[in-house]
Design a protein around this nucleic acid. Sequence first.
DNA 1: TTCATATTTCAATAATTATTGAAATATTGA
DNA 2: TCAATATTTCAATAATTATTGAAATATGAA
Lengths: 113, 113
Amino acid sequence: MKEDTILAALGALAQRSRLAIFRYLVEMGHEGAVAGQIAEALGIASTALTFHAKELVIAGLVRSEQQGRYVRYTANFEAMNGLVAYLTENCCRGDLAACCPPKRSSKPARKKT
Amino acid sequence: MKEDTILAALGALAQRSRLAIFRYLVEMGHEGAVAGQIAEALGIASTALTFHAKELVIAGLVRSEQQGRYVRYTANFEAMNGLVAYLTENCCRGDLAACCPPKRSSKPARKKT
DNA sequence: TTCATATTTCAATAATTATTGAAATATTGA
DNA sequence: TCAATATTTCAATAATTATTGAAATATGAA
């Protein structure tokens, strides 16, 4: 994955609304969600939703598809996979064991203190 | 890992110089590198290096340690691990197999002399 | 102490990104 | 056709982030 692509993906996710949109779309699976649904679920103005969703699309993390008067957005899992792969590569050298987390539970792992 | 932490880490990495700095520090392993060395290796002005390195430190991805008149920076592998874990969590739902990449490919670490 | 080196701070500017509301476009159904 | 709905575009503004050079600070060595 090209560095420019990585930078675009990181930049796209590095914003509260967009991270929320992306997480929401991941949650919605391959079916995704239409713009209004996302905006309402997350409390984002429609004009802001358009703006942020477009950023995600440009970054390649989200796909959009016109469906009549709706626009359906879906997470691009392969792109996310590419991002995670890149970060894993770039965090693992010399510390291999620390990187790819051994398992994910559906409940987030609790941080021990 | 808290969302604010994730946003900070993503934002810190979403910039060409900072991504380069972080990758360089990962390459340098636990020994890290001092400011001037990083700046020279990457062709970044010292004042910009200070600025960007501080962003990485604030985001928790890098640690800094004063050593005489030098400042040594090291990658925080645990923080990166936390970021990758978060992204894995948030990309895997409903598409589990696609996420944690099965293996790193053949590309060896480029070492410059 | 003085000098040279390493890094940071500061201030000005430039560039980018986010937010908002009004207006525009496009689709659907009556 | 008209009216309602869904989304986008536009323009203005606000907020944030990046870049630069000069000056300041701090250390180590002579």
